[in-house]
Simulated scan of single mutants.
Amino acid sequence: MKASSIDVNLSTREIQVRGTAIPLGSRAFDILTVLMAAHGQVVSLEDILRKVWPDTVVEESNIRVHVCALRKALGEDRRLIQNIPGRGYRLTPRCDMPAARAGMSMASEER
């Protein structure tokens, strides 16, 4: 994924912001990939819980904790993750970017 200054490599599970590798916990990374896969659509809290914690019962507050960590890692681009009250979260495109480059781009190995 690449949004002017953010690179996410799904195959190595690494994120770089402005060329600097940023440590990110596995659950926060999983939430990011779920949001990226939704292509700007709202992802419900239930869907996030089901996809990130498939065989575990956790509270919705766990999502908030990991989204907070993800926003902190994104720094100036933290607003890319938008909370939709009562519905969930979505990854929004940057206003100053052309539509074709909006959001974040992914680098992954096709298998």
Rank of each mutant, 00 (worst) to 15 (best):
M1W: 05
K2I: 15
S4W: 08
S5W: 05
V8S: 00
L10Y: 01
L10V: 07
E14K: 07
Q16L: 11
G19C: 03
A21W: 02
A21P: 01
P23F: 04
P23T: 00
G25T: 02
G25N: 11
A28C: 06
F29I: 02
F29N: 02
I31Y: 12
L32M: 09
L35M: 07
A38H: 08
Q41T: 06
Q41F: 06
V42T: 10
V42E: 00
V43D: 01
S44P: 04
S44K: 08
L45C: 05
L45A: 02
D47K: 13
D47R: 12
D47I: 13
R50V: 04
K51S: 13
V52M: 12
V52S: 09
V52R: 10
W53R: 12
D55W: 08
T56S: 12
V57R: 08
V57T: 03
E60R: 15
E60Y: 12
E60M: 08
E60C: 05
N62M: 14
I63G: 02
V65K: 15
V65R: 15
H66G: 03
V67S: 01
V67N: 01
C68I: 10
C68G: 11
L70M: 09
R71A: 02
K72L: 13
A73V: 03
L74W: 01
G75W: 09
R78F: 06
R79Q: 14
L80H: 08
I81T: 05
I84N: 05
I84V: 15
P85Q: 10
R87C: 03
R87V: 04
R87P: 00
T92F: 10
R94Q: 15
R94I: 13
C95M: 14
D96E: 14
M97C: 11
M97S: 13
P98L: 12
A99C: 11
R101Q: 13
A102V: 04
M106E: 08
A107E: 13
A107K: 11
S108V: 14
S108F: 15
